[in-house]
Design a protein around this nucleic acid. Structure first.
Lengths: 145, 145
DNA sequence: GCTTGCCTTGACGTCCGCGTCAATGATTAC
DNA sequence: GTAATCATTGACGCGGACGTCAAGGCAAGC
């Protein structure tokens, strides 16, 4: 199997495969003409990399899984180093989710506050003799788009 | 106020301020010597930018807030465009949090599965006459770090 | 032969928010 | 005077995972 076919079968690009090779993952043997030659095992390595990449793992974090497969294990996550990466990633995800949730709550509170403030401004602007604070843009409740 | 003082008061760097200016946010007037000159209003603009940046907003997303303040409003989030950014950000955050939660759950499940598989392998390897599947690395339950 | 399509290596571009360095000029401290 | 600090513009670097282009070699169909 050549690089184009492998890339297609794994749903990625030849550029990515060459990049992985440059990083020391997914090394390929060469055919007589200099073309990279891959087999089904390489496809499994690549699928392992892609799965983890889709999860948001960095390339370096996939290395233990790849090495585990290269060592002959039937799954890339049976080796201790892979489990350690899983655990680190879980902790990292939990921390990140917590941060994002916190930001989400703060932004939500700001939105609620600002909406209330605007509603009061608009109510005031409808009263005769209200102060001259211009309400630029759409004054109605129109939702853009 | 010159650029160094403004940066210090806002807890950022002169480089960041020049970058904001290059993006069209936070334009400064110039003193006779060519130095940038800022006032308290600029500090408020900058604080608005920094707050949103700390929330993870992209620079472009802070623009409506800055323009709102420049238009004379007492808060940057009273204008409709700012509210729209808040709402988009909330939706974006919700989507992202959901994705991360999904990934977290999948990684957690993979970890549990792999741990179980390893436990069974180790149990098997303790039995005389077990197949020759090498368990490389730490075989015990040692938690690294 | 010719064209088309795959392959090779090498190198620069992308995105974003700056960091860092360089060379030079203004201000301030002593 | 002079040294230290602050300012200016310009330009390159970074990280991560590639995209994209260039210039050429190899293979297959007609």
């Amino acid at each position: 199997m050549r690089i184009g076919e492998l890339a297609a079968r794994a749903g990625t690009t030849t550029r990515a495969l060459r990049y992985y090779e440059s990083r020391g993952l997914l090394t390929a043997r060469r055919a007589g003409n200099g073309y990279r030659a891959y087999d089904e095992d390489d496809l499994r390595l690549l699928q392992q990399i892609r799965t983890l990449q889709d999860f948001g793992f960095e390339l370096e974090e996939t290395r233990p899984f790849v090495e585990c497969l290269r060592a002959g294990h039937e799954a890339g996550d049976t080796c201790p180093a892979s489990l350690a990466v899983y655990r680190r990633k879980l902790a990292e995800l939990d921390g990140l989710i917590g941060q994002l949730q916190s930001v989400r709550d703060q932004v939500g509170a700001q939105l609620a506050r600002a909406e209330t403030a605007r509603a009061e401004l608009e109510a005031g602007s409808l009263v005769p003799g209200a102060p001259g604070c211009e309400l630029t843009g759409m004054t109605g409740g129109g939702t853009a788009e």
